[in-house]
Simulated assay, not measured.
Amino acid sequence: MRVAVIVDLVDSRRIADRAAVQHLLERAFATVNRAVGHVEPFAATLGDEFQAVFASVTDALEATLLARLAMPEGLDCRFGLGRGEIRAVGTGLTGVLQDGSAWWAARAAIDEAHRRADGQTVTLRSWYRGDGETSFTDAAINAYLLGRDYIVGGMSDRERRLALGSWLGRSQSVLAEQEQISQSAVSQSLRRAGVTALRAGIGEFREAATQSGVPC
């Protein structure tokens, strides 16, 4: 079982210089690819879409969180996460063609994220579908995503940069120098933005997977 992730840009039709944006997006996803283990890294496919494959739901959750934090200013993206089987079905212009329940679930998940964001849950950018009937685990993951996206959606551009830098292991003094603010301001910003809660959420998933012995 693998976790497929489909990514698309929010309001991509409004972007004037699509080529320049694509370059910035590739740099952002390269940062995520270096930070989180993957089966297949984030890579552009067609139009405004990127895809990746992860060994566990937890890795996919961390990678999609970092991807949102790494987005260039003024841009946002949407994620569909699907767990299931992935199989090669041939080759095409972009390499191996894949199919399977993980991709079907990821496509259904990103459609659901779009539908919910267009409704009352305007801050939602991510959704998860497991392989089969909806379970309590599926609901728990999506409850986390609802809270996570609300927190990230309320961050300023600076807070996202600080959150990403902190997650990648940069010290507060380094972040302060980069942003030309005091170290105290960095600490306050990270606390106010909810970075500790985001990190704790991922930690809970990893601990549960370790204790159960089942990749999650």
Rank of each mutant, 00 (worst) to 15 (best):
residue 59 D to E: 15
residue 26 E to V: 02
residue 30 A to N: 09
residue 10 V to L: 10
residue 18 R to N: 10
residue 65 L to C: 01
residue 27 R to I: 02
residue 32 V to E: 08
residue 28 A to Q: 05
residue 14 R to V: 04
residue 10 V to P: 02
residue 8 D to Y: 07
residue 52 A to Q: 04
residue 52 A to G: 07
residue 25 L to A: 07
residue 15 I to L: 11
residue 42 F to R: 05
residue 60 A to G: 11
residue 17 D to H: 09
residue 49 E to N: 13
residue 56 S to D: 10
residue 64 T to D: 04
residue 12 S to Y: 04
residue 44 A to V: 09
residue 44 A to S: 13
residue 16 A to T: 15
residue 34 R to L: 15
residue 32 V to D: 04
residue 44 A to F: 11
residue 17 D to P: 07
residue 45 T to K: 11
residue 47 G to I: 00
residue 63 A to S: 14
residue 14 R to D: 13
residue 28 A to N: 04
residue 41 P to F: 03
residue 28 A to S: 14
residue 66 L to M: 02
residue 47 G to C: 03
residue 18 R to G: 06
residue 22 Q to F: 01
residue 61 L to N: 02
residue 46 L to D: 08
residue 32 V to P: 10
residue 50 F to G: 09
residue 51 Q to K: 07
residue 8 D to T: 11
residue 36 V to N: 08
residue 48 D to W: 04
residue 53 V to R: 06
residue 5 V to I: 13
residue 45 T to Y: 12
residue 41 P to E: 07
residue 19 A to Q: 13
residue 22 Q to V: 01
residue 57 V to S: 03
residue 40 E to D: 15
residue 51 Q to R: 12
residue 19 A to I: 04
residue 21 V to D: 10
residue 25 L to H: 09
residue 10 V to G: 01
residue 53 V to P: 03
residue 26 E to P: 11
residue 47 G to H: 00
residue 60 A to Y: 08
residue 16 A to P: 05
residue 55 A to P: 00
residue 41 P to W: 12
residue 51 Q to P: 06
residue 57 V to M: 06
residue 45 T to P: 03
residue 29 F to I: 01
residue 34 R to A: 14
residue 53 V to D: 05
residue 40 E to S: 14
residue 27 R to M: 07
residue 62 E to W: 06
residue 12 S to R: 03
residue 62 E to C: 01
residue 10 V to C: 04
residue 11 D to N: 13
residue 27 R to C: 09
residue 59 D to G: 10
residue 8 D to E: 06
residue 57 V to A: 04
residue 40 E to M: 07
residue 37 G to H: 09
residue 49 E to I: 05
residue 32 V to W: 13
residue 40 E to G: 07
residue 57 V to K: 02
residue 64 T to C: 12
residue 32 V to A: 05
residue 31 T to G: 00
residue 38 H to M: 01
residue 43 A to R: 14
residue 35 A to C: 06
residue 23 H to Y: 04
residue 22 Q to M: 09
residue 29 F to C: 04
residue 45 T to A: 12
residue 42 F to P: 10
residue 41 P to S: 10
residue 4 A to D: 01
residue 24 L to W: 08
residue 24 L to R: 15
